[in-house]
């Protein structure tokens, strides 16, 4: 389905009516699954993902003597923290058959999914304090209910929220979003605008990249670009992407704080020592 990107220049509005620097609606919830150690549900526009975290728990016998990611077969792949004594982060991603327009059968060894899993595993284990949980496994399972672009970003954000809910020690939020550019690789026009948070239609048509940063900093954990684009576009796209990550981080932070406040009010948890004077809003 060709998208007429030339229309952008007329009103500076994108296909879904956003300006270049606007995120789609992000709605997130944590502690959605009572049985899980940590869980979250996240929507970025029409991209909807669920995440369940189990662990840190004792590594199963199947892990003995294998390297990280070796058990990729059935339970997803783990990349980070394969060193002895550090917790291992095992990620599995399931794309629901009804999540996109065409129902595509994906084998268990679909390389695209394996790559997603290893990216998420490696990105999170750089933020999680895996050295605090020696010889254990943190297993993250992600379910994609609906796809509308920015899939990797949504998965990373959902996984971060679920890890926070599970109470796993981490350095900071891993916040991710996408950025694109209105120019195609062939056009060398200087007027091209960078775009924040691309939906599926834009991802099909325009060059774009996924950025994940560590909290409020400018430090990039994940940078994935899969389309052809001029080098000169990269700076603008990266700047917009990093800025978007900061916005995403604030939204996620609000969700976590709101949930914490509600749980305190409901008496589900007790205020910890030293929390009396802490501002929970």
């Amino acid at each position: 389905m060709p998208l007429d990107t030339s229309a952008y220049n007329l009103a500076l509005l994108r296909v879904d009516g956003r300006r270049w620097n606007e995120l789609r609606r992000i709605h997130a919830q944590i502690r959605t699954q009572p049985a899980a150690d940590g869980s979250s549900y996240l929507e970025m526009g029409h991209t909807k993902v669920m995440c369940v975290v189990t662990g840190p728990s004792e590594s199963g016998a199947r892990r003995v003597g294998t390297t990280g990611g070796a058990a990729a077969g059935a339970l997803g792949s783990g990349g980070g923290g394969s060193r002895d004594g550090d917790a291992e982060v095992v990620v599995s991603v399931v794309l629901a058959g009804f999540s996109s327009v065409d129902r595509k059968r994906r084998g268990r060894n679909d390389k695209g999914i394996l790559e997603l899993q290893s990216t998420i595993s490696s990105a999170l284990s750089s933020s999680l304090h895996t050295h605090l949980y020696p010889r254990s496994t943190i297993s993250i399972s992600l379910h994609v209910l609906s796809q509308d672009g920015s899939l990797l970003a949504a998965l990373l954000n959902a996984a971060t929220l679920a890890c926070i809910d599970a109470g796993i020690a981490m350095t900071d939020y891993v916040a991710a979003c996408t950025a694109g550019s209105t120019s195609t690789y062939a056009a060398n026009d200087e007027k091209a605008d960078p775009l924040l948070d691309m939906n599926h239609q834009e991802e099909q048509e325009l060059p774009g990249l996924t950025v994940a940063t560590l909290g409020q900093s400018d430090r990039v954990i994940v940078l994935v670009c899969e389309s052809r684009v001029q080098v000169s576009r990269l700076e603008g796209m990266l700047a917009v992407g990093v800025d978007g990550c900061k916005q995403v981080r604030d939204i996620m932070d609000k969700v976590v704080r709101e949930k914490g406040r509600r749980m305190l009010e409901e008496g589900a948890i007790e205020k910890g020592v030293g929390l009396e004077d802490m501002d929970l809003d």
Binding site: G79, S126, V220, I221, L223, V224, C225, Q230, V231, L234
Partner: peptide, 23 residues
């Protein structure tokens, strides 16, 4: 001068400016 692909798949965080220099 066309980027065909960039893959920084996790790992330790790197300053965005440093990544641009690398490119």
């Amino acid at each position: 001068g066309e980027i065909c692909q960039i893959a920084k798949l996790g790992g330790t965080a790197v300053e965005a400016i440093a990544l641009l220099n690398c490119t």
